[in-house]
C-alpha cells in the first residue's frame, strides 16, 4: 500500500532522514520506534507531504506522492494524528471533527462516521460544544484520533499517541487503535514506548539518527537483544 524508498529529508541544512525505506501492506499495523530526534515525526510529515524529500520516493498504491502538497495527500486517504495532537484550539469539538471531513462531500457518510466517533469516544459527544483547546490531554488525543477518522483514512499515521497520558488512558487508546485496525484501516504507528508499540503491531522498524537500523516482525524484534537493550530498558 505504502512504500517509502530511500528518502532524504532536510530542515534547511539539517539532514534529518538519511535514506529511510519502509513498507506497509494493506491491513497491517506497522510501528516505527526510535529515540528522541531519530526522525520518526519527520518520516510521517514526509509521507503526509508537509515536508518533501530531497531524494527518494513515497509510493502510495504505486503512485509517487513525494512532491504533492499535504492538502492533496489527505484526499488519497492518508490521515495523520500528529505529534502533540494539534487540536484547533478555538474551534469546538464538533467543528474539529467536521474539519476532519473537510474534503468529503458524502453528507450521509459523514454523519454516520460522526456517530461512530462519538460512540468510540463518548466523552467527545458530551463536550461537542466546548472549545478544543479546553480539553484535557487524553480528551485531546481522542479528539485528534476521531478527527483523523472523520477523513475515512485508508492509512492512518499516528505520532506518539501515548505521549503524556496516564497508563489507563494509554491502554484505552491502544485498544481503540487495534479496533480501528480490525475495522479495516491500515496503521503506521510511531512510538517511543517500544514495549507498547511492539505489543500491538505486526511489524516494526527501528529508526536511529535518520536511518532504519532494524526491521522485522514485532514479535521477533521484541526479543532482539539490541532492541531490548536500547528501547526496552534492559541491561
Amino acid at each position: 500500500m505504502l512504500k517509502v524508498e530511500e528518502i532524504h529529508t532536510y530542515y534547511d541544512h539539517i539532514h534529518a532522514l538519511k535514506g529511510v525505506s519502509l513498507e506497509i501492506r494493506e491491513g497491517e499495523i506497522v510501528c516505527l520506534i526510535g529515540s528522541n530526534g531519530a526522525g520518526k515525526s519527520t518520516t510521517l510529515m514526509t509521507i503526509s507531504g508537509v515536508l518533501h524529500p530531497a531524494r527518494g520516493r513515497v509510493l502510495f498504491d504505486g503512485q509517487d506522492i513525494a512532491h504533492r502538497p499535504a492538502d492533496r495527500i489527505v484526499g488519497l486517504g492518508i490521515c495523520q494524528v500528529p505529534e502533540g495532537r494539534r487540536i484547533l484550539p478555538r474551534l469546538s469539538v464538533a467543528d474539529n471533527l467536521e474539519m476532519g471531513a473537510f474534503l468529503r462531500r458524502d453528507r450521509e457518510g459523514i454523519r454516520q462516521d460522526l456517530e461512530k466517533v462519538y460512540e468510540l469516544f463518548p466523552v467527545l459527544a458530551e463536550r461537542r460544544r466546548q472549545q478544543g483547546g479546553t480539553l484535557s490531554g487524553g480528551e485531546q488525543q481522542m479528539l485528534a484520533i476521531g478527527r483523523a477518522l472523520m477523513g475515512r483514512p485508508r492509512l492512518l499515521l499516528l505520532d506518539e499517541p501515548s505521549l503524556g497520558l496516564a497508563p489507563i488512558v494509554v491502554e484505552k487508546i491502544f485498544g481503540i487503535i487495534q479496533q480501528i485496525n480490525r475495522d479495516g484501516t491500515t496503521i503506521l504507528l510511531v512510538e517511543q514506548n517500544a514495549n507498547l508499540a511492539l505489543g500491538v503491531s505486526d511489524r516494526a522498524y527501528v529508526l536511529e539518527t535518520g536511518r532504519v537500523t532494524l526491521s522485522g516482525p514485532s514479535r521477533e524484534l521484541a526479543h532482539d537483544e539490541r532492541v531490548r537493550k536500547a528501547y526496552l530498558g534492559e541491561q
Binding site: 503526509s48 508537509v50 502538497p69 499535504a70 489527505v74 500528529p82 494539534r86 484547533l88 478555538r90
Partner: peptide
C-alpha cells in the same frame, strides 16, 4: 489557528 494541521486536514491554505 494552525496552518500545518489545516493542511493535514486537506485545507488548501
Amino acid at each position: 489557528q494552525d496552518k500545518v494541521m489545516s493542511a493535514l486536514l486537506g485545507i488548501n491554505a
